[in-house]
């Protein structure tokens, strides 16, 4: 079985001896102008351990020193070189587009938490407490209940449900609004350095905002300086930063080729 680390913008690269999983050599499997970086995996699958995931990343970083590289999702395996070539051929249009996008760039991860007690930004839009379209009906009903004079407020289970639902909707909208506001702020401050920014809200509902920034490799220090200015100007944000990473967040999960089904 072949373990596939990434796609390189060249049909060849020098073998990297012994750096792969299980001590395997990293070798190219060429397909047209591209090559997949692979090593032989004795088993049919790989266990995701911190060590194995770091190894995957280290191989990509090593390749990125000389090439544009698209990181494959951890755990990608293929039966043999011929089957892999078929995969590459099938996805080649999308792969070429993505390679052009990430060439010479790295990914920086930002994790940002806003401290509400120190927030000085005006006009929090979520204070309008608007209700999303899908929840409008129950939201309006719940708002009516919440706004009713105290003695008129229904105390049944239905009312409690609607109150809880309204609170949940408000909370979700507040997070989304806050995320958009933060992304806009960061785009303004980092626009000259970051080529692209992807913002995400953690699925676990935590207060952090996750941003991925695509930065030219030789401008990482400049990016860090810009982030430093941002932290000074907006002390209400607790910003942590990791990287540089292979550009996982800036590749299409599936091929862009017209051949996809």
């Amino acid at each position: 079985m072949l373990y596939v680390y990434g796609i390189v913008d060249s049909c060849r690269f020098e073998t990297i001896p012994g750096d792969g999983h299980e001590g395997g050599d990293i070798v190219p499997v060429p397909s047209g102008a591209l090559a997949a970086a692979v090593s032989v995996l004795p088993a049919c699958s790989i266990e995701a351990t911190p060590q194995s995931v770091w190894r995957h990343e280290r191989v990509l970083e090593r390749l990125m020193l000389e090439h544009a590289v698209l990181p494959l999702r951890f755990g990608t395996v293929c039966r043999d070189a011929d089957a892999l070539r078929e995969c590459l051929l099938y996805s080649s249009d999308g792969l070429v587009n993505d390679l052009e996008r990430v060439s010479g760039k790295v990914e920086i991860a930002l994790r940002i938490v806003e401290d509400d007690r120190r927030s000085a930004l005006p006009g929090r839009s979520w204070e309008r407490a608007c209700i999303s379209t899908t929840d409008r009906q129950s939201g309006e009903a719940a708002r009516g209940i919440l706004n009713a004079p105290g003695k008129d407020r229904p105390a049944g289970r239905g009312a409690a449900y609607l109150r809880a639902r309204l609170q949940r909707v408000r909370g979700e909208m507040a997070r989304e609004d806050s995320g958009k506001r933060l992304e806009q702020l960061l785009r303004q401050r980092l626009d000259l350095v970051a080529k692209d920014v992807v913002c995400a809200l953690p699925a676990d509902g935590s207060a952090a905002f996750l941003l991925s920034c695509l930065v030219e490799r030789d401008r990482v220090t400049e990016f860090a300086d810009a982030l430093d200015h941002f932290r000074r100007d907006y002390p209400q944000f607790d910003v942590t930063c990791t990287g540089p990473w292979a550009p996982y967040s800036f590749v299409a999960a599936a091929p862009l080729s017209g051949r996809q089904q």
Partner: peptide
């Protein structure tokens, strides 16, 4: 490590065809 796992396990290219994502 958390940032790396968020990326390597959830993001990155997913090839179509004979390639699989196979975790023990």
């Amino acid at each position: 490590l958390a940032d790396l796992l968020d990326r390597a396990l959830y993001k990155g290219v997913v090839l179509w065809g004979e390639a699989t994502i196979s975790l023990a």
